[in-house]
């Protein structure tokens, strides 16, 4: 369906363009930057979980690995282009290795959750205990729970002195988020993406069709980690410090909540869920009456009870109910499931 892909690409470009222009009028770009980064992180799990059927409790591990990879290599290399690429590659390779271990070991879903969770914990513990001066990679001190501050931030590729910051950095993050959305769209429309959705639906059937489920799930897992790693690298640039908290369980849980609230099995849902909830957290952080975690928990509970499919699927169902009443040209067209479902399948 190349025509559909072009249409999607145009839509994403337009929406990204308009948002880059409009949103800074309402919210500060410093906050918007991190919302875009979280959106990308949400999308990474949205892809792996919502379309690949792999519930990963450790998406934060790849996010943190990306951030640390960036910080460490930026200190050692002194510019940002190569570290940014490594921020994508390091988590991807790590995930490919971990994924191969799990999927070729024929682990069930529950154990997969447990292992990804434990890996996140291990990373957290390990990085946390590297406070001593003997823990260095090249010129970079790992710094334990204090993290790594003071690394070179993003610069124009090839010109190490031209730093990208402030409004410009927001635009870079937003454009990258748009690009990742397009990439994910293209992926889901490709045979690889359609087969991945088939695997989510029924692994046995897909293997009886002749597909190597293990290899394909590993690849999907690595792609999700690469996106999370990119988000991590961008986050490191935004925060200008990386700390072990990036690997915290709270962070992992939050990503999962974003996906549930936004809507699994959609591309837009996890992005909106991430940006919306992170913004809510930001607003709540400015007052001291109610606790942040309490509200996030309440939101999750309410969604699970009343809107279990999430915001985006609910909205698109509403939209369809409205549009469905309008007469259509051909009867067959009406039988065709709406676009979102076709994307799933």
């Amino acid at each position: 369906m190349p025509g559909d892909l072009t249409r999607d690409a145009i839509t994403i470009t337009l929406v990204t363009g308009v948002l880059i222009w409009v949103l800074p009028l309402i919210v500060g770009t410093y906050t918007l930057t991190v919302l875009a980064i979280y959106g990308m992180l949400g999308l990474s799990l949205g892809l792996v979980w919502g379309f690949g059927g792999i519930l990963c409790f450790g998406q934060a591990a790849f996010f943190g690995l990306g951030a640390y990879a960036y910080a460490i290599f930026a200190i050692n290399i002194g510019e940002s282009t190569v570290p940014m690429i490594l921020a994508v590659l390091v988590p991807a390779v790590f995930a490919a290795f971990l994924g191969a271990l799990m999927f070729y070991g024929r682990l069930g879903d529950v154990y997969l959750g447990v292992i990804t969770l434990v890996v996140t914990l291990i990373l957290f513990k390990v990085i946390n205990s590297t406070a001593g001066p003997q823990y260095v990679i090249g010129n970079a001190r790992l710094g334990g729970f204090n993290g790594i501050p003071g690394f070179p931030t993003l610069n124009v590729p090839g010109i190490p002195d031209a730093y990208i910051w402030g409004d410009r950095y927001f635009q870079v993050c937003a454009v990258l988020l748009g690009l990742v959305c397009m990439l994910v769209t293209a992926l889901l429309r490709s045979s690889f993406g359609r087969i991945a959705v088939g695997i989510r639906e029924n692994e046995t059937r897909m293997s009886l069709m002749g597909y190597d489920v293990r290899a394909r799930k590993t690849a999907m897992f690595a792609i999700g980690a690469a996106i999370a790693g990119l988000a991590g690298g961008l986050f490191a640039n935004w925060a200008e410090i990386v700390t072990p908290n990036l690997f915290s369980l709270g962070q992992s849980a939050e990503i999962i909540i974003w996906c549930i609230v936004g809507g699994l099995g959609t591309r837009l849902g996890p992005v909106l869920g991430a940006a919306g909830l992170a913004y809510l957290k930001f607003l709540l952080g400015q007052q001291a009456v109610v606790d942040n975690a309490l509200v996030t928990g309440l939101v999750l509970v309410l969604f699970v009870l009343f809107l279990p499919k999430g915001v985006v699927p609910a909205l698109s169902a509403l939209w369809r109910a409205g549009a469905g009443r309008r007469p259509r040209g051909r009867v067959r067209q009406r039988r065709r499931p709406p676009r979102r479902e076709r994307l799933n399948g």
């Binding site: 959705v197 088939g198 639906e201 029924n202 046995t204 059937r205 897909m206 009886l208 499931p337 479902e341 076709r342 799933n344 399948g345």
Partner: peptide, 8 residues
């Protein structure tokens, strides 16, 4: 029956 239930 081993089919992909939510797909067409």
């Amino acid at each position: 029956p081993n089919v992909l239930d939510s797909l067409s």
